[in-house]
Amino acid sequence: MFYTNCNHISVLLDEAIQALNINSTGVYIDGTFGVGGHSKLILSRLAKQGRLLAIDRDWISVKIGEFIAKQDSRFTMIHNVFSKMNKYVENMGLIGAVDGILLDLGMSTLQLNDYSRGFSFMRDGLLDMRMDVSSGQSASEWLSKASLENIAWVLKTFGEERFSKNIAKAIVAERRYKPFTSAIALSKLICDTIPYRNMHKHPATKSFLAIRMYINDELKEIIRVLNDALVMLSPKGRLVVISFNSLEDRLVKYFIREHSCVVSVPSKLPLTNYQIFSKYKNECQLKNMGKLTPSKQEIKRNVRARSAILRYAEKLIL
């Protein structure tokens, strides 16, 4: 099967599975299947009664998952955005019965290494950037008609790019002569526009990240799935999220913080934990289990891991 030589290394693989605290007969969701690194390790921990649902919007990933599903009846592969997983969970009668949800945000190495998709600013390819090439507008289509103000806003909001206005002006000026269809052409334009060079980061990194996140509606997707996770998880079920940039991580951090129970109660007040949680049940739905980052050894093996942060929480029994 072609996925075996895609050179993908799952980041924080063992840590993510440990954070899920797997029950061998439980129900789990891999919300970002990719090439199946996390899914295969989860399956190895499940008994015959266990179940794993995986979802991905990328058709190549779906084909990989379908190949595994044909060999393992415990596994179900779904093609969709992960914000729609609650619909499948509801149809299967599993609302409130999911023991763990894993989200490994961002791109897979499979997508990044496929230069024809336009995700990489290092090699040429069609400037597409859609995770699901069967729907939505491509990056090239958006850049051909977006206003200068909209382009600048996207670069600033999603990429935190300090030179967003300069880059937007250069894009609008250049597209009058020819449309942006090449990833390397956009990368070169950004490099030529930015006056300041970060020795640790390619000049086009933030802009490519911003355009990709906007085209795929990634932040809204994260917000939707996090909110749905509260309903899908069973008591003591785990939510595990690996993020790779500050915007993603802040969303996850604040979500867990908002729904975690940190209540100060006078020591002599005669209230049980159940009574405290019941009083604050709208806020107290999760227990914050903390965060994990890659070891120096993992970063040395896989440079992509350097920005990864894993945060996890457990749903409270109310």
Rank of each mutant, 00 (worst) to 15 (best):
3 Y>W: 15
7 N>P: 01
8 H>P: 06
20 L>G: 06
25 T>D: 15
26 G>F: 04
32 T>A: 02
34 G>E: 03
35 V>N: 02
35 V>S: 14
35 V>F: 13
36 G>T: 04
38 H>K: 02
38 H>Q: 09
39 S>K: 00
41 L>W: 00
42 I>M: 05
42 I>Q: 05
46 L>P: 05
50 G>R: 06
57 R>K: 15
60 I>W: 02
64 I>N: 03
70 K>I: 08
71 Q>N: 14
72 D>M: 12
80 N>Q: 11
86 N>H: 06
89 V>T: 03
94 L>A: 01
96 G>C: 06
98 V>R: 00
99 D>S: 15
99 D>P: 06
99 D>L: 01
100 G>A: 06
100 G>K: 02
101 I>C: 00
108 S>T: 14
109 T>I: 05
109 T>M: 09
109 T>S: 15
111 Q>F: 01
113 N>Q: 13
116 S>L: 01
118 G>E: 13
121 F>A: 06
123 R>T: 04
126 L>M: 10
127 L>P: 11
127 L>D: 13
129 M>Y: 04
135 S>M: 08
136 G>R: 11
136 G>A: 12
138 S>M: 08
141 E>D: 14
141 E>L: 04
142 W>F: 15
142 W>L: 14
142 W>A: 04
143 L>I: 12
144 S>T: 09
144 S>K: 09
146 A>G: 06
148 L>C: 09
149 E>P: 00
149 E>F: 07
153 W>I: 02
159 G>S: 08
161 E>N: 07
164 S>Y: 14
165 K>L: 11
166 N>M: 13
166 N>H: 10
171 I>W: 05
172 V>I: 15
172 V>F: 02
174 E>S: 15
174 E>C: 08
176 R>L: 15
177 Y>C: 02
181 T>S: 10
186 L>T: 10
190 I>E: 03
191 C>D: 06
194 I>F: 02
198 N>F: 00
198 N>C: 05
198 N>V: 03
200 H>D: 09
200 H>L: 13
201 K>R: 14
210 A>D: 09
211 I>F: 09
214 Y>G: 01
216 N>L: 12
216 N>G: 11
219 L>E: 02
220 K>I: 05
225 V>C: 01
225 V>M: 01
227 N>G: 08
228 D>F: 00
230 L>D: 09
233 L>K: 04
236 K>F: 12
240 V>W: 01
242 I>G: 07
244 F>I: 06
246 S>K: 08
248 E>S: 08
249 D>W: 10
252 V>G: 05
252 V>Q: 09
253 K>R: 13
255 F>A: 08
258 E>W: 03
259 H>E: 07
259 H>A: 10
262 V>P: 01
269 L>A: 11
269 L>Y: 12
271 L>D: 06
272 T>R: 08
274 Y>D: 14
275 Q>V: 04
277 F>E: 11
279 K>D: 01
281 K>P: 00
283 E>T: 11
284 C>I: 03
292 L>T: 13
293 T>M: 12
295 S>Y: 05
297 Q>G: 03
298 E>R: 07
301 R>N: 14
301 R>F: 11
301 R>A: 09
303 V>R: 15
304 R>C: 04
309 I>M: 11
311 R>W: 10
312 Y>T: 04
315 K>T: 08
316 L>F: 04
317 I>W: 00
